[in-house]
Amino acid sequence: MLDLAREVWRLYTVRTDFFLSLLGQHLYLSAVSIAIAFFLGGAVGVACARNQAVKAVSMAVVNFLYTIPSIAFFGVLIAFTGIGDTTAIIVLSAYALLPMVRNTCTGISNIDPDVMEAAAGMGTPPLALLWRIQLPLALPMILTGLRNMSVMVVATAGIAAFVGAGGLGVAIWRGITTYNLAMAVAGSLLIAFLALSIDFLLGIWEKKFTQRWSS
């Protein structure tokens, strides 16, 4: 056990460049997927809060996407988009949609009806209602969704290497195929570390935005 730890540490020090480049790729894949899911999921979430029919359909779709096992998802998609980053990004953002759509929609739907009535009664046009009232008030929920889905994306991105995309999964993949346990562990640890850091940083950000006015 101690040997393993020592060997992992040796890998980090000797092959620093290798791990840094994997880390860079991992961050890139995750960031692109998170951004897509954030804006797409947010937009769908807003639409869901406006219209029950849209909500029923979209929630069914994103729930379905969420439940596809990742291996199957990657496997099917390879047939269409081939091997590489594109496939990985599509799968990762598809998974991330559910928490974004759900939280955005819930955040907007749960706004105090009195507040909505005051806004309407004072002559707020639809777009101003969204920007000035609904999105800011749903922000705590939206940021929670962002945090959950970011952690999930960073963790799941470890599998991207299996479809030929880069990222820390490459170290795990290589470790498994060459019976190099330390290599696999080194990759896994970095992924876990990355996920926890993002959770922590986004957590701080979330508090900063909302602690003053929300109880």
């Binding site: 105090d112 009195d114 507040v115 009535e117 005051a118 806004a119 309407a120 009664g121 004072m122 002559g123 009232i133 800011p136 008030l137 922000l139 006015w213 929300s214």
Partner: peptide, 18 residues
């Protein structure tokens, strides 16, 4: 436009919490 000419105090105040 009409609503912006009418002062409105709703049952339950309805201030904007944010």
């Amino acid at each position: 436009a009409l609503r912006r000419r009418i002062g409105y105090v709703i049952q339950g105040v309805g201030l904007f919490p944010h």
